[in-house]
Design a binder for these strands. Sequence first.
DNA 1: CCCGAACTGTCAGCTTGCCGTCAGGTTGCC
DNA 2: GGCAACCTGACGGCAAGCTGACAGTTCGGG
Lengths: 219, 219
Amino acid sequence: MRALAVEDDPRIAKDLHAALSAAGFRVEGTGDGEDAWFLGDTEDYDLVVLDLGLPKLDGLAVLKRWRANGRSMPVLVLTARGTWQERVEGIEAGADDYLPKPFRMEELIARARALVRRTGGHAAALQEAGDLSLDTNRMGVALRGVPVQVTALEYRLLAYLMLHRDRPVPPTELLEHLYGEDDAREANALEAVIARLRRKLGPGIIGTRRGFGYFLEAA
Amino acid sequence: MRALAVEDDPRIAKDLHAALSAAGFRVEGTGDGEDAWFLGDTEDYDLVVLDLGLPKLDGLAVLKRWRANGRSMPVLVLTARGTWQERVEGIEAGADDYLPKPFRMEELIARARALVRRTGGHAAALQEAGDLSLDTNRMGVALRGVPVQVTALEYRLLAYLMLHRDRPVPPTELLEHLYGEDDAREANALEAVIARLRRKLGPGIIGTRRGFGYFLEAA
DNA sequence: CCCGAACTGTCAGCTTGCCGTCAGGTTGCC
DNA sequence: GGCAACCTGACGGCAAGCTGACAGTTCGGG
């Protein structure tokens, strides 16, 4: 996932960069309208975050030019004053979503994710829960950015927990998902997989709620 | 992929020619505006690289005449001074992309590729992953520049891995791609092809992730 | 039409490392 | 304290994958 962050305020730009990176985007940034237009027109991004208040070339103008040139990547527009007027302008210029300043980074990330998922068709390739991230495209797992080698079975278990990160997943369900419902295994097989994963990932990643099931901590 | 390079400075023209060739284009060139206009108007190119500072007939004029005549091939414009003014002029004249001098050849190639990809052309003719490169035009494979002879089946396998170089490709998918899904083969057939390829390419090219699939290392 | 060469699927035997099972421990709940 | 849920280290079976050999097929040349 490649993102372009267009923001002239260096402090916000830095935060943006950090947040988007943490969310799994490869981020490039500029605070210059001309640059932004140029980059967005020549490179392929999965997401653009665009501030409207820019020097030289206004964000709205940049956006309009992109759209006029047939560039269709999802664009999330930021604006200082969240007036209804500006919002209409943004949408008409071709923005896919809209976020008034000031905003919390969490909200921006949430919207960015939704946008990418909505437009890209395929779900975001990178899923995260706390320190854990798994790349559903290259089937890889990373802990605080450091890749961790995981077997196919372990990966499927993690992916399932990630998918249902909002609740503890009971062992029966996991067994049924990992193996067929017909292909019976002892419950202990699952516990063994969990144990091996915990050894690889360290504590604080996979939690247990006795009687309910397993879950990803800090999800 | 056929490219026309319009550039009057012989030194740059030579570099252009070399770089585009290396990128898999069949290159024709001229330094004369009238020639350029004639060629672009009568021949079919997948890409035109156009310098604006030309004798006799200015690049912008050439471009405008092409467009007025309904020629729609992608045009990458080069200019000595990357001023905003000139950019606008170039874009308005119908350029698809814009590159200010001085520039690095790598950037030009990258933009040329993006342009061709964007305008519906096929992917770049030369694809690379680490030491391995394959020429999709002549169906050739090279290792650190040294050509390696591979069979048609082996080439198709490599090409598929190259196309999906960002993820491990499971054996089932490869089997389905190499043969039809109806035309069933033993899984071992694939392993045999892999083994033969590895013998030709040496270690460190085709990797295996047990349970996930095969992939190009150093991709 | 025959011969040889190149290509490729199948087979058999091997290596590797995944993971299910077992046994014994620890934790939490009643 | 006792039971059930859960954890963990060790071990061995076995499936995934590797490789060399061989044969069937195709194709071009003579």
